[in-house]
Write a protein that binds this DNA or RNA. Structure first.
Lengths: 202, 202, 202, 202
DNA sequence: CATGAATGAGGCTTCATTCAT
DNA sequence: AATGAATGAAGCCTCATTCAT
C-alpha cells in the first residue's frame, strides 16, 4: 500500500526543513514533495509552524523515552554517560534530519511553541546533568567545569547529524564507542577504571 | 562621527542573519536596521546573497589570518592545537554572530558562492588536520580516529557561538583553556606532558 | 428532539449572513455553526448563493402573506398604512437577521437570483404605494412627494432591524405605534381623524 | 495631470467597497481599478482594513466639520434640525459611496478600528441629540420618544444614499427641504411656527 | 445521512529587486 | 548618496465545491 498522505507530508517536511531550513521551505515545496496540492496539505497539518513544532516535539519525546529506557536501573555514572552518548550519537546519525531540525530551527518558533520545545529539551538534558553530577559526587569524573563540559559534549554529539554518513568507514557502533570515549575523556574519567582502590570501582 | 551607511548595512546583516537566518531576514528588515530605505541598501551590496557570502568570506579570511599568525614558528603539535582551539573558541565567543552565520547558512548559498566559502573553510581546517597529523606522527597524540576526532572537536568548539555569554562566570581565557584541555584529552594527549623524556615536552 | 440538520443549516446561515455578511461568512463557518462537516452542508442546500436567495425569498414571501392578510378588507388608507407600518416594524424587530439580509445582501446575488428577489420586494412595496396613492386620492394624506416619502418611510422602518432590542424599554406594540404615527405625520395625515367632515372618513 | 496613484487607490476603494462591500472586494479588484499592481497598492495603504477605516474616519470627520460649521451660531432648535437634516441628506446624496460604507461596513472592522469609527459617529450624532433635546426643552418639539425618533430619522436620511439619483426629478435642494419637513413633522414641530406667542417665535 | 480527502482558484500580504529622480 | 514608486513572483493560507466511501 502506498504511504498515507499524512505520512508523506511529515516525511517531506522533515527532509525539507532539515536541508533548506524552515524559512527556506515553501508551502509549495512541501506540497510537491508530498504529492499533494498545497491546499490539501492543510488537511494534515495546522500551520507550517505547527508542523515544525510537531516534528520537534515528537523527536524530543522519542529521545526522552529511549534515554529513560536505556538508563533504567543503571547506577554507574560512567555507564550512564556511555549510554547517553551512544544513544544521542546513534539518534543523530540515523535521524540526522529530525535532529538537525531540533538543533537548528528552534529560534523560528513563536514564543509559545518555543517554550514547549525547550521544556522537552531541558527535560532531556537533565538526564545528562544528573549523570555528570553523580559522577562528580562519586569521584568518578574530574572536571572543574561540569556545566560547560556538558554543553560542549552535547554540541560535539549534535554535530554528528551534520556530517555522519552511513556510507562512510565508521559503523554506528564504532561511532558511538568513539564518542563515548571522547566524552569520558572530557569528563576526566579514565576509561579503564581509574577509581580502583577508591570505593571499589564499578 | 556617525557610523557610515555601508558599515551599518554590514552590522545589520550580521546581526539579523545570525539571529533570524538568511531566509528569515527580509530586505526590509535589513533596511530598517541600517536606517536606510530598502532601495538604498543596493548602493552598499550586490544581492542579498552577495552580502551573505561576503560576510562569510571575511569571517573565514580573518580566522585564517589569525590562525596563521598564531601558529607562526610553533613546532609542538600540542601547542599548535592549544593555540588553534583557543583562537577558534575566542573567535566564536567574541564574534558569535559572524561565526554562526558561517556555520549555519552555508547551505543557502548558490553553488558558486558555496564553493568559494567551502574552499576557505577547508583551508582553515587543514591547519587543524596538519597539527593533529603531526601530533600523531610524533606520538604526542593517541587516537584511532583522527578525522572523526577533529570534526568532533570542531563541532564542540563551534557550539561556543551558540551558548557563550560574556556575562557568564567564565572569562574568555578560562573558556579557551578549558576547551584546549578538552581537545588535548580527546586527542589522547595528557595535559601534564605525558611524553616527558621524549623531546622535552612543552 | 434535536433540531433537524436542515433547520440547523438555515438558522446558522441566517445568523451568520446577518452578522458577518454573505462574503464574510465562509462555508466552514456555516458548517461549524450547523454542527456538520462542510461537505454535509451540501445535502441541505445548493450553492451558498442558493441558500442566501432562499432565505431572502422566504422572508419576503412571509412578509407579503402577512401583509395581505392584515390588509384584508381594510378600506381606510390611514388604517392600511398603520397596519403596514406596524407589521413591517414588528417583522424587522422580531426577525432582524432575516430582514437585514434582505435589506443588505441583495447586491451579492447573481442577476437571475436578484431579479426573483427584487420581484418579491416590488410586489410587497406595491401594497405601500397603493395605500399611499389611495390616501392621496381621498385627500387623507398630503404630500407633494409620495414616492420619496414612501421610500423614506420604508428606510426608516427598515432601520429598526439594525437597532431595536427586545431588552430595551420599548415594547413591540409601542414601537409599532410610534412608527405608525411617524408615518402618518410624514404623509401629512393628522392621526386624530383630521379629514372628518370631508368625505365621511372612517 | 493624471490623478496621483494614491488618489486612484482611494477612489477605487470607495467605489468598490460601496458597491460590492468590503469582503466582496478583492485586493486584485482594487489594483485593477487603481491601475496598479496589487503589490503597489501597499505603497499607499496599510492593510485593506486600514484603507476601509481611513475612508470611514475621513468621511465622518468631514461630516462633523461641516455640521459644526453649519450650526455655528444657530440657536433655534428647528433651524438646527433643518440644517442637520439638510446637510446629512445632501452628503448622502452627493457622496453615496462613502456614506454607504460608513453605514454598512462598520461591523467588518476589528474591535480597535471599530471603536475609533464609532467614537466619531457618536460625536456626530450628539449634535442631533442636542438639537432635539433643546427643542423639547423649549417646547418646540413634541414627541414622547426622542431617542427612537432621532434614530428613526437618521435611518431615514441614511437611506438617501441607497436610492437617490442626481438624474431623478428631485434636485438636491428639494430633497433636503422635503426631508427637513419630514423630520420636523416627525418631531411634532409645526412647520409654520407653532410656537408663536410663546417666546417670540424664530 | 454523513464525511474525509482532495483541489483549482483565489484570499491578503510580502518578497527581492530595479529605476527614474 | 538616497529614495519613492513600481512590480512579478511568491509568501502562507482559505475559498467553495466535488466525490468516493
Amino acid at each position: 500500500m502506498a504511504l498515507a498522505s499524512g505520512q508523506r507530508v511529515r516525511r517531506a517536511a522533515v527532509k525539507l526543513f532539515a536541508t533548506r531550513g524552515f524559512h527556506g521551505t515553501g508551502i509549495r515545496d512541501l506540497a510537491r514533495a508530498a504529492k499533494l496540492s498545497s491546499a490539501s496539505l492543510y488537511h494534515y497539518m495546522g500551520t507550517k509552524e505547527d508542523l515544525l513544532a510537531d516534528i520537534m516535539r515528537d523527536c524530543l519525546r522519542d529521545l526522552i523515552t529511549a534515554a529513560t529506557e536505556t538508563l533504567d536501573g543503571v547506577q554507574d555514572p560512567r555507564e550512564r554517560v556511555i549510554r547517553l552518548v551512544t544513544l544521542h550519537v546513534r539518534t543523530h546519525a540515523t535521524q540526522p534530519e529530525e535532529t538537525r531540525i531540533v538543533d537548528n530551527e528552534i529560534h523560528v518558533l513563536s514564543p509559545n511553541a518555543q517554550r514547549s520545545v525547550i521544556a522537552l529539551r531541558d527535560e532531556y538534558e537533565r538526564l545528562w546533568t544528573q549523570a555528570i553530577a553523580d559522577g562528580l559526587a562519586q569521584g568518578v569524573f574530574r572536571t572543574t567545569q561540569p556545566a560547560v563540559t556538558r554543553i560542549a559534549l552535547l554540541e560535539m554529539c549534535n554535530g554528528v547529524a551534520r556530517w555522519y554518513s552511513p556510507r562512510g568507514q565508521l559503523s554506528l557502533d564504532e561511532l558511538g564507542a568513539h564518542f563515548a570515549e571522547l566524552a569520558l575523556r572530557g569528563l576526566g574519567a579514565c576509561p579503564h577504571g581509574c577509581t580502583e582502590g577508591r570505593s571499589g570501582g564499578e
